[in-house]
Design a protein around this nucleic acid. Structure first.
Lengths: 142, 142
DNA sequence: CAGTATCTTGATAATGATTATCATTACACT
DNA sequence: AGTGTAATGATAATCATTATCAAGATACTG
């Protein structure tokens, strides 16, 4: 998984005439190793332990790059900070988000996925990706 | 529609021990009259024409109130500014968002809605609301 | 393998939307 | 009309993200 991600990242870099760097490797490793739904700040703090010389802006810049090349997904939920999650090695999924405790449950429903594609088609629209978030109250908060 | 919205707003205010004001009436009217998917800035500019004395912060504060009481929906799409749309008088709908031109198409699919509720239930989750956005290329951009 | 063009980095400043502050004004209730 | 308190408007503060820029690193070049 990690190797596939690195390949994708490297070929994206060379394709765009960008360069690989030590920092980029470190940040990508940390991002892939991280638990899901991580903020830039959390990622920065995780990296800081072993690589205190890597700056906040560099982490930010590279997380954006991960999104560009399809390795990461951006989630802006309510007033929470923007979170990112790796896409490689994780099947596509949607989110149930508890409005009480903020807990995020990952779910998937292939029927819904298919209907979404139909819905797009019916509107002369070529879907690229989608985002489905269901807000409510989780088991624990009820 | 407008009257219903005003009723909802007023009862929300009194319920919370808040007061109605001339500004609140003006801002709510402007919001309801506005086209859909408006930003705070756009709303502020629309209001400024007839009511230049109403401040930006006041508009902001009250749009937040509209969201709290269920009159408005917040949409954060990509890097665009946060947009708001009235919920009263508009049936619930989802969005097809063109990644080229930013055009937003409103759609609805009752089958998807039902499956979403089932999906939530299956996870011991009580749904309150949801957000479905399908990103892709619209007819005109293709 | 050194030379070089240019990309990247890190530190910090700038930006821009949103939120907080606070003195003044205005609402709503008695 | 009087009064307690919420709301306003102007502005400052906040905070994530983005831009700036000098210094360093990378990947070709011959």
């Amino acid at each position: 998984m990690t190797n596939k991600a690195k390949e994708i990242f490297r070929s994206y870099l060379s394709e765009k005439g960008l360069r690989n760097t030590r920092q980029r490797e470190v940040i990508l490793d940390a991002f892939l190793a991280a638990d899901k739904h991580i903020t830039v700040e959390e990622l920065f703090n995780a990296i800081k332990k072993k690589n205190p010389e890597i700056g906040y802006a560099t982490v930010h810049r590279n997380v954006s790059l991960f999104c560009e090349c399809g390795l990461a997904d951006e989630m802006k939920i309510g007033t929470q900070k923007t979170k990112y999650e790796p896409k490689i090695g994780h099947k596509h999924h949607d989110h149930l988000i508890c409005v009480k405790c903020g807990r995020i449950i990952e779910v998937n429903d292939s029927k819904i996925e298919k209907l979404q594609d139909k819905l797009a088609e019916a509107n002369d629209f070529t879907p690229v990706k989608h985002r489905l978030e269901i807000y409510g109250i989780c088991k624990q908060c009820r």
